[in-house]
């Protein structure tokens, strides 16, 4: 448990977790149990990567953090507040949590610029001029200054996902959730999106990232959580998880990935 590879910067510094999943369970309305007593913490400024085979509950877990799915048991603590309590305003929590979807989910009937500005305008009641200025700034940040006036459908997948990241950032969230942000992209576009995410991580953004990009997890994550079948298999620093996986199921998962496309990064 305590070898040098396994020390967690943030936990060591004693910071309170920004997000804490404390034994949460979840089931879909059809009765399908998707999470069983899942616990892990995300500290401010940390990048936590969620790994695991398809159907292991990674998407459900981060959708619970965003309260798009209701947890059936356990506590979900956000910024020190138990948001599973009945009197918590979900809308206020979501204003502080950014989300990036696998299929971008840009609003097809709005220009790219409006997509980025709409959150602050509608949810935060910001003056339009201010929201559009911020939106232009963020489009520049993701390298799409010249695309503000076009519709999302006129952009490539990689560009759309960068706009989606800018849209989430426009709310100036305390944490960003990414659900397989590069899985729907052609291989040649994966890099541009990961580069934006890496830049965000360097700037100190707190991020929870569901991904199959092992190189990204290895190089950018501060903490890796491996899931299977709705449960936590193991967690640790990327060095420890990738080099000395303790659980047979983690090894099996990595083995399968390697078989598929030899993506497992070493060293």
């Amino acid at each position: 448990m305590t070898d040098s590879l396994d020390t967690r910067k943030m936990a060591m510094s004693g910071a309170e977790p920004l997000v804490l999943l404390d034994g949460i369970s979840h089931a879909y309305p059809n009765g399908k149990v998707s999470l069983t007593e899942l616990s892990f913490a995300v500290h401010p400024g940390e990048v936590v990567c969620l790994l695991g085979p398809s159907g292991s509950g990674k998407s459900t877990a981060i959708r619970c953090v965003n309260m798009l799915e209701p947890v059936t048991a356990g506590r979900l603590v956000f910024e020190g507040i138990d948001v599973t309590a009945k009197d918590v305003n979900q809308v206020e929590v979501r204003k502080r949590v950014g989300m990036v979807f696998q299929n971008f989910e840009l609003f097809p009937h709005m220009s790219v610029l409006k997509n980025v500005a709409i959150g602050p305008i509608v949810s935060l009641k910001r003056p339009k001029a201010e929201a559009y200025d911020l939106a232009r700034e963020l489009l520049a940040k993701v390298g799409l200054s010249d695309k503000g006036d076009v519709l999302p459908s006129q952009l490539s997948g990689g560009q759309q996902q960068r706009v989606a990241i800018a849209r989430a950032l426009a709310m100036q969230p305390d944490v960003m959730l990414f659900d397989e942000p590069t899985s729907a992209l052609d291989p040649e576009m994966v890099g541009e999106v990961l580069a934006v995410m890496r830049k965000l991580a360097e700037e100190g953004m707190t991020m929870v990232v569901v991904t199959h990009e092992m190189r990204f997890a290895r190089n950018v994550a501060d903490w890796v959580v491996v899931m299977e079948d709705g449960r936590l298999v193991e967690e640790g620093t990327p060095e420890r998880i990738f080099e000395q996986p303790r659980m047979e199921r983690t090894r099996a998962f990595f083995g399968k990935l390697e078989e598929q496309d030899g993506v497992l990064p070493t060293g």
Binding site: N66, L68, V91, R94, V97, E105, F107, S123, A168
Partner: peptide, 9 residues
């Protein structure tokens, strides 16, 4: 869901 996650009601 994308709209909700932007803090819209």
């Amino acid at each position: 869901q994308a709209a909700l996650s932007l803090g819209m009601t």
